[in-house]
Amino acid sequence: MNLFLLQIADTASKAVDAVSAATTGEAPKDLSLINLLFQGGVLMIPLFLLLVLAVYFFFERWIAINKASKIDENFMSIIKDHILSGNVAAARSLAKNTGHPVARIIDKGLQRIGKPIDAIEKSMENVGRLETYKLERNLGVLSLIAGIAPMFGFLGTIVGMVQLFYGISSTGEYTLSTIASGIYVKMITSATGLIIGLLAYVGHSFLNAQVDKTVNKMEVASSDFLDTLQEPTR
Rank of each mutant, 00 (worst) to 15 (best):
I71E: 01
L37H: 04
A68M: 06
E173R: 07
A89C: 00
T192W: 09
S223F: 11
S205F: 12
I105S: 10
I8P: 00
D30E: 12
K70M: 04
N97Q: 02
G114Y: 05
Y166G: 13
Y56N: 13
T23W: 13
N97D: 08
D30P: 01
G114V: 04
L49W: 01
G25N: 06
Q111P: 02
A103M: 06
V159W: 01
Q163M: 15
I8H: 00
I183G: 06
I117V: 14
L135F: 02
A27D: 07
D10V: 01
V220N: 08
K217E: 13
D224V: 07
L49A: 15
H82A: 05
S143W: 00
R137E: 05
L226I: 13
A12P: 00
I78D: 03
S77A: 11
L207P: 11
A64S: 07
S222A: 14
I65W: 07
D17R: 11
H100T: 09
G197E: 11
E60K: 15
I120M: 12
E125K: 15
F59S: 05
N66Y: 03
I106N: 00
I188D: 06
G203F: 14
T132I: 07
S169V: 11
N138E: 10
I34Q: 06
P232A: 14
T132K: 08
Y174M: 02
N2T: 13
S93L: 10
A103R: 12
M151N: 05
A9D: 00
D72I: 00
F58C: 02
Y133A: 13
T23A: 15
K186F: 03
P116T: 00
A90W: 03
S222H: 11
I105M: 15
S69K: 05
G156D: 07
M44R: 10
F152N: 01
L37T: 09
V127T: 10
D72K: 08
G182M: 07
P46A: 07
K108P: 02
I83W: 03
G153R: 09
T175I: 01
T24G: 10
I71R: 02
P150I: 10
I106F: 01
I65K: 03
E219N: 10
V127F: 02
L31W: 09
I105H: 07
L130A: 07
F58V: 03
L50M: 15
K14G: 00
R129Y: 09
V162I: 15
S181N: 10
I158V: 15
F38A: 12
L194M: 14
I188F: 04
F48G: 08
D227F: 12
L155Q: 03
A191T: 13
A180D: 04
L144E: 04
L139R: 02
E219G: 01
L47G: 03
L130Y: 06
P232T: 15
K115E: 03
S170V: 08
D10E: 07
D81P: 00
F59Y: 09
V215M: 02
A221Q: 10
G128E: 04
I179T: 09
S13Q: 08
M1E: 04
R129F: 09
L144D: 08
V42A: 11
A209E: 04
E173M: 12
K122S: 14
A191I: 12
K134S: 14
V185R: 09
T132R: 11
I183W: 01
D10K: 05
K14Y: 05
L207A: 05
V162A: 10
E60F: 12
